[in-house]
Design a protein around this nucleic acid. Sequence first.
DNA 1: CGGCATCCACCGGGATACTG
DNA 2: CAGTATCCCGGTGGATGCCG
Lengths: 139, 139
Amino acid sequence: MEQGHTDVTDSCRVVAPILNRIGDKWTVQVVRLLGDGPRRFNEIKRMVDGVSQRMLTLTLRGLERDGLVNRTVFPTIPPRVDYELTDLGRSLWLPVQALGLWAYEHHGEISRAQKAFDKRAGLSEEQPRKIAAAGMAGR
Amino acid sequence: MEQGHTDVTDSCRVVAPILNRIGDKWTVQVVRLLGDGPRRFNEIKRMVDGVSQRMLTLTLRGLERDGLVNRTVFPTIPPRVDYELTDLGRSLWLPVQALGLWAYEHHGEISRAQKAFDKRAGLSEEQPRKIAAAGMAGR
DNA sequence: CGGCATCCACCGGGATACTG
DNA sequence: CAGTATCCCGGTGGATGCCG
């Protein structure tokens, strides 16, 4: 990638839609699951608890469309379909892992911050979050 | 609700909601923007093009609630409010950067994969994606 | 078994107007 | 300037049923 580019919004416009894919309700779990090796449809469905088969289908289609997973059909009876990460998918898996690690390390802090925030908001509608002295507004 | 799987789904359940925050429509852009230094409300609104003031408010509130940004009110007239990343917010910024880097590096591959996929889907409804020989389905 | 199609509830998010 | 409040639309995603 070209370093030294400059505009924040520029790369953000590229990142945003991808983060939207990644960050949707099921993609991450599926990617992490498949990072472990190829799985078939109902296998995934069982492991990703709570997912409807509709959403799992859509998720896998999206991943396939993005070139992140390979879909392999075995024309047997009953039919069998395997999904596995492509090289691209595996390369995605790494930064996702990093983010997952961050989430895992900090979700305690986050939920504490949330509870503190909710407490402030709940006890008093007019609780000062952080008040700066007037006059130091100039930068 | 089931459990007792590998540790994959475990950490995923922690990651998913956070990725949901990060991956929502505006959070990343705001975080990256604030990674550059503190900004005031309308300053952010101007830089993040397309965001409504409602969504910007909600986004910043969410980030504040998660302990990722500090909100500082200057009780001046006209009022002024600064937003800046907390230490936690800055620590998040790194893996987000990594994911952004990945997106930036691979969005070409992705859009190519998407076009190829759409072409396959468009030309023929019954285009075989990848067919494995029957008989090798056993694992 | 692995889908796709349909219907429908919910809520994310935009536009607009009003307040301190 | 920095919000809050209200309305409303479209997309996301769950439930169900049918099909190869």
